[in-house]
Amino acid sequence: MPENQEKEQPRRRQARGERRIAQLLEAAATVFTSSGYTAASTNAIAREAGVSPGTLYQFFPNKEAIAIELGDRLMHRMRETYGEALAPVDPETSLEEAVGAAVDRFIAFNCDHPVFFALMHGSDVPGRFTEDHEALHATLVSRIEGLLSSFLPDAPPADLTRTSHMCLGLYKAGLELILAHEGTERAAYVEELKSVLIRYLQPLVGDRLGRSPAATATS
């Protein structure tokens, strides 16, 4: 066999393997989202993927390994999302614009990948995800602090951290409602979440800038 053909065969096998892994992870995302982690099974994932359980076990030894691989990939994408969504803003950017842009990016990610919420917020997920979730939470709080510092440049660090925790808590509460609805009702809940965050932050921003909340709301 020519040398170039010998090199091509492993590449083809690798490509087929990567496609199969992607197929299995997509099926697992569907099963975890609809059934939850505990109720999900490797048989259900294989059935959703249209393959035999034996084929699944060629790539993953159990459902925990599938969940960890899926979670790692989603965590990477989430880090890309918050890197873009929570960057410090131009001083001329309004609070409404900053909040709206950040919420839209995060909601889009979670709506595109509903399994992320199921894995990261479920009480029955593998222990590995508890550590990942805590690390993600700490990083998000830090990035929110950076975003809010654009509006609250003189805020004491403790106040900024507390406000960031509140913003993230409000977002998570709203996200659960948003993911539970679809269509126009989902869009309405997204707008409600933005309104809650803006109404929470407006008095703080107004106070820090030496302006009244009313003046901030009408500026």
Rank of each mutant, 00 (worst) to 15 (best):
T184L: 13
L209I: 12
R143K: 11
H76I: 14
V115E: 07
C111D: 06
A29I: 06
L193I: 11
R128G: 00
E8S: 10
C167W: 09
A40K: 02
T93K: 01
G83Q: 03
L25W: 04
E185S: 03
P88I: 13
R16I: 12
P203M: 04
F151G: 04
Y37Q: 08
L148E: 08
A215M: 06
Q202V: 12
G50E: 11
M166R: 05
P114T: 08
R20T: 15
D112V: 10
L197E: 03
I107V: 15
Q5Y: 13
E48M: 14
Y57M: 10
R20I: 14
A173H: 14
E134A: 12
A22L: 10
T30N: 01
M166G: 00
A87G: 02
I45L: 06
A215F: 07
S41C: 04
E26P: 00
A108D: 12
A138F: 06
L140T: 12
A87F: 08
K63W: 04
L197Y: 01
I178K: 02
T139D: 13
G50I: 11
P53Y: 11
R11T: 14
A87I: 13
K172T: 12
M78D: 04
Y189S: 01
D207S: 04
S34W: 01
R47H: 11
R13E: 15
L56K: 00
Y189R: 10
S123C: 00
E18R: 11
R199Q: 12
E192G: 03
S41G: 09
E134P: 00
A101L: 07
E176Y: 10
L179G: 01
V115L: 03
Q9D: 03
P126R: 00
A29F: 04
G174N: 03
D132I: 07
P153C: 06
S52T: 15
